[in-house]
Measured scan of single mutants.
Amino acid sequence: MDALKSAGRALIRSPSLAKQSWGGGGRHRKLPENWTDTRETLLEGMLFSLKYLGMTLVEQPKGEELSAAAIKRIVATAKASGKKLQKVTLKVSPRGIILTDNLTNQLIENVSIYRISYCTADKMHDKVFAYIAQSQHNQSLECHAFLCTKRKMAQAVTLTVAQAFKVAFEFWQVSKEEKEKRDKASQEGGDVLGARQDCTPPLKSLVATGNLLDLEETAKAPLSTVSANTTNMDEVPRPQALSGSSVVWELDDGLDEAFSRLAQSRTNPQVLDTGLTAQDMHYAQCLSPVDWDKPDSSGTEQDDLFSF
């Protein structure tokens, strides 16, 4: 819950932080000083300027060897085509990944977070970031790969997607708890209302004896509580940590079903599988986004697919 609360507080303090972009060759504004600060901008989305290598189908939802083989196929196909790589912007948030063309600003792909089953910074092609997700059109699994400016960037994108998945799962947990509370309150309110109706004398007997209905007592009954809980029953509950912020979080049926399955089948359902080692994760978390744009010590960066 700490990640969720800190993310909400950060967004309320400075929503404009989320509009910064990394990996864009110096076009961005001043960047936060450390990885923790940038992680807090996830709610509205972190932007990464990358190059799209392509996509291939895979048979399993996750796995280092599986993704490595898929990336190898994608890279080989991209090299064989001889075409310049498409420059894209990857927007990562707890909602998922939005992929747009840098030149036309046209939407290429919009992947809900619950469809993503794996992401990684490839070991062999260490400047490549990739994720595996279920197609929104059918049940097939797709591996999408992107060329980053350097290994640090690939690791940073991988960690960002993993963190977005974690925050999304926490949102789901909060929403589920809130819905259970509202359902319980609604049920209790309905029981109270039913009890009051059972003990209320029939209207005919009131008229016969000349008694008047006590409207004041009726007004004191917990009807307002019942209506408050039943009027918006169809509205999706939102985490309290975000009250007053500009973010509107809505959970669709697909996300609810997917996270429910994860909660039942996995020990740590909030953790998205990645190909990063503990050492890689520690190294990337210690980086400032400013470091992502620094040239690798191995030599001059080449803006070309064939540089790796």
Rank of each mutant, 00 (worst) to 15 (best):
S245C: 11
A258Y: 05
L251W: 06
G194Y: 06
H282V: 06
T104S: 13
E178D: 11
E180M: 06
D252C: 04
T300I: 08
N211G: 14
F165D: 05
R13A: 11
V58K: 01
F259A: 03
M46C: 10
S14A: 08
G25N: 09
D234K: 04
Q139E: 12
D253P: 02
L203V: 07
R115E: 09
G275R: 02
C143L: 08
V236R: 14
L242Y: 07
K91P: 00
F169H: 02
P239T: 10
V192I: 13
C286F: 05
A162T: 04
H282I: 14
L255A: 03
Q86S: 09
V161C: 05
A284T: 11
T36N: 10
S186L: 02
Q136C: 15
T158Y: 05
E217S: 04
K84R: 06
G26W: 11
L242H: 10
N34H: 09
K51N: 02
I98L: 10
T41A: 09
F129G: 00
R13W: 08
G45F: 05
L272I: 02
T158N: 03
G24S: 11
S205M: 10
E217Q: 05
S135E: 08
S186Y: 01
Q187G: 04
N268R: 02
L90K: 00
G54Y: 00
V167P: 03
G189F: 03
D304A: 05
L141W: 12
V157S: 02
A278T: 06
M153G: 15
H282Y: 09
N229W: 03
L147F: 00
G23N: 02
R39S: 06
P32T: 15
P201M: 11
L99D: 00
D304G: 13
S93F: 13
E59C: 12
P201N: 07
A68V: 02
K62R: 03
G8K: 15
L11T: 09
D101R: 14
Y52I: 07
L47P: 10
L57G: 10
T89M: 14
D183C: 14
E217W: 01
Q302R: 08
D280W: 02
K152T: 14
V167N: 06
L42Q: 12
G8F: 00
R95F: 05
E170Y: 05
A69H: 12
R182L: 13
A278N: 09
K87N: 15
T230S: 11
G45P: 07
L213D: 04
N110G: 15
A18V: 06
A80Y: 07
A164N: 07
L251Y: 09
L255V: 13
R13L: 15
H125A: 00
F48I: 02
R95I: 03
K72V: 11
S260A: 04
G189W: 02
S93E: 07
A10M: 01
E216A: 08
P61E: 14
V226W: 04
P202K: 10
T277L: 06
T267A: 10
L215H: 14
K72Q: 06
D2F: 04
C143H: 07
D293P: 03
D256S: 02
L193T: 02
L50M: 04
P61Q: 13
T209Y: 09
T300Y: 11
D122Q: 00
Q134E: 09
M55A: 01
K181V: 07
S112R: 07
Q86H: 07
D101H: 12
A258R: 06
L287Q: 10
K87C: 15
G244S: 13
L103Q: 03
L107V: 11
D122P: 00
Q60S: 04
G194E: 09
T36C: 08
P94C: 07
V167M: 09
D293C: 10
D304T: 08
L50R: 00
R73A: 12
R73T: 12
M46N: 14
G23S: 14
E177N: 12
R238Q: 05
S260Y: 13
D253I: 09
S135H: 14
F259K: 06
G24Y: 08
K72W: 15
V88P: 05
L203E: 06
V128F: 00
L47R: 13
T160H: 15
G254V: 09
D304N: 08
D37R: 08
L4T: 11
G45H: 06
A68W: 01
D304K: 08
A258G: 02
L272Q: 07
A258T: 08
Q187A: 04
E109S: 11
E235W: 03
T38K: 12
